[in-house]
């Protein structure tokens, strides 16, 4: 396994600057822009929605049926996701999807009147949210549950209201975990490949798809290392995000002992 680990670093080895220059290519830059925008958008929406769901689950018995089901379902959607999710959304929002047909026949609305955006970038937003929200529940719920009952009691004894509790205690304590989870969601969306690959079969609007194109392309000969350069670019983004995450995690763990 170690050999594989080092092999991965060798892949970008002998870094001639040519490959790195490819990262400055306007097309590549646009793709990175797309990827980052998509990841950021779904991370923020996913984090907010996920936080609301986690809040709703707060106080449910950890051994209870509700929690067991939600935990397992979140795990499936967040980790098993990928291809099945893509197909679920094709069945939902594809041209003959359940929701598309419903909108058309029942409400007389055509969501694709201005072109079929589902198989392009915007179409990825909903499927991505579908695995972002469960991930948020998985990573954020423990933080939420680590809020001590004593703090609520202290707040109550001092005459604080519910609002005061959340404003002065809950939210400040949770802020680092929330932002940390947000970063994790960003990283998750940024590195997701399967869903996008199954929905978008042509074109390379986001970085992972561009790596696919670079790896499998039969026409762009002589740029075999472009995939390596793109991968390097992705790693740079990931390293930045994940080091910020570990910093925040350390800050957050202060309250989770």
């Amino acid at each position: 396994m170690l050999a594989l680990g080092t092999g991965f670093f060798d892949a970008d080895g002998a870094p001639t600057l040519d490959n790195l220059l490819a990262l400055g290519d306007p097309v590549v830059l646009t793709t990175f822009g797309n990827s980052i925008a998509l990841s950021a958008l779904t991370a923020v929406l996913g984090a907010l929605l996920g936080a609301v769901v986690s809040y709703a689950l707060l106080g449910a018995r950890p051994e209870g049926a509700l929690r067991s089901v939600v935990d397992a379902a979140s795990g499936v959607l967040a980790q098993f996701g990928g291809v099945p999710l893509a197909f679920a959304f094709i069945a939902t929002m594809g041209l003959n999807g359940l929701v598309t047909v419903f909108l058309k026949t029942t409400l007389g609305l055509d969501p694709y009147a201005d072109g079929i955006w589902f198989y392009e970038m915007p179409g990825l937003i909903l499927p991505y949210l579908y695995f972002q929200v469960p991930l948020m529940v998985i990573v954020f719920l423990p933080a939420l549950e680590a809020l001590r009952p004593q703090w609520v009691e202290a707040n109550a004894t001092l005459g604080g209201t519910r609002l005061a509790y959340w404003r002065h205690i809950g939210l400040p304590v949770l802020a680092p975990s929330f932002i940390g989870s947000l970063l994790l969601l960003f990283a998750n969306a940024f590195s997701a490949y399967a869903t996008a690959a199954a929905i978008i079969s042509q074109g390379s609007q986001i970085v992972p798809l561009q790596i696919r194109a670079a790896l499998t392309s039969e026409t762009v000969l002589g740029r075999a290392n472009l995939a390596g350069a793109l991968a390097l670019g992705m790693i740079v983004v990931m390293v930045v995000v994940m080091s910020a995450y570990s910093l925040l995690e350390r800050r957050a763990s202060r309250w989770q002992r």
């Binding site: 991965f8 970008d12 490949y193 992972p208 790596i211 793109l230 992705m234 790693i235 990931m238």
Partner: peptide
């Protein structure tokens, strides 16, 4: 922290 897609590039 390493996206699978990046892992592939290294694994190829």
């Amino acid at each position: 922290t390493i996206p699978a897609i990046v892992l592939v590039v290294g694994l190829a």
